[in-house]
């Protein structure tokens, strides 16, 4: 079947079998490999992408379910002009170690900050509970999200997100 969706602001289309998950669609058909296959049943969050503003596990969604929707992947977060504050802070503080969970963690955090620009530590911990990380103990990530929230609040109006351009 044919699936057409808006990925990082651009319309993308591919013909795939119905059992294709959004994760496989992104990775194998659109060659966007930022979302990772960690468990493939929605436990680890390494495949997290944002669909219509909400963080979801791409492995638990059929590509067909996402037909016609707007998807943001890690590849769509930075622009030519600059990094997303989360990417910037994570880079600066070594918040990611092996980095495999990173795209998922960053996208979950972005969805959180879009909804709640100044989250408490408890709110961050609740939001990130679906993103397992085996390296970092989440410590520098949580600090980094606070830092990024501060940056985003004090910054001049951010560049329009890719999906709005």
């Amino acid at each position: 079947m044919n699936v057409t969706l808006t990925v990082n602001g651009e319309i993308r289309s591919a013909s795939v079998p119905p059992e294709t998950t959004l994760l496989v669609f992104l990775r194998e058909h659109l060659l966007l490999t930022g979302a990772k296959t960690g468990c493939d049943i929605g436990d680890c969050g390494a495949c997290t992408v944002i669909v219509d503003g909400k963080a979801v596990n791409a492995c638990l969604m059929l590509a067909a379910q996402a037909d016609g929707r707007a998807v943001t992947t890690i590849e769509g977060l930075a622009t030519r002009e600059g990094l997303h504050p989360l990417q910037k802070v994570f880079e600066e503080t070594g918040a990611l170690q092996c980095g495999f969970c990173g795209p998922g963690v960053i996208l979950t955090s972005k969805a959180l900050l879009d909804e709640n620009p100044d989250p408490t530590t408890e709110e961050i911990r609740t939001a990130l509970a679906g993103n397992l990380c085996r390296c970092t103990g989440y410590v520098k990530m949580i600090d980094g999200i606070h830092e990024a929230a501060k940056m985003m609040q004090s910054a001049t109006p951010a560049l329009p997100a890719p999906e709005q351009r």
Partner: peptide, 12 residues
């Protein structure tokens, strides 16, 4: 509702 799965599964 808030203790079901994680944010990603609650959104779907």
């Amino acid at each position: 509702a808030v203790v079901i799965g994680a944010v990603q599964t609650r959104n779907l």
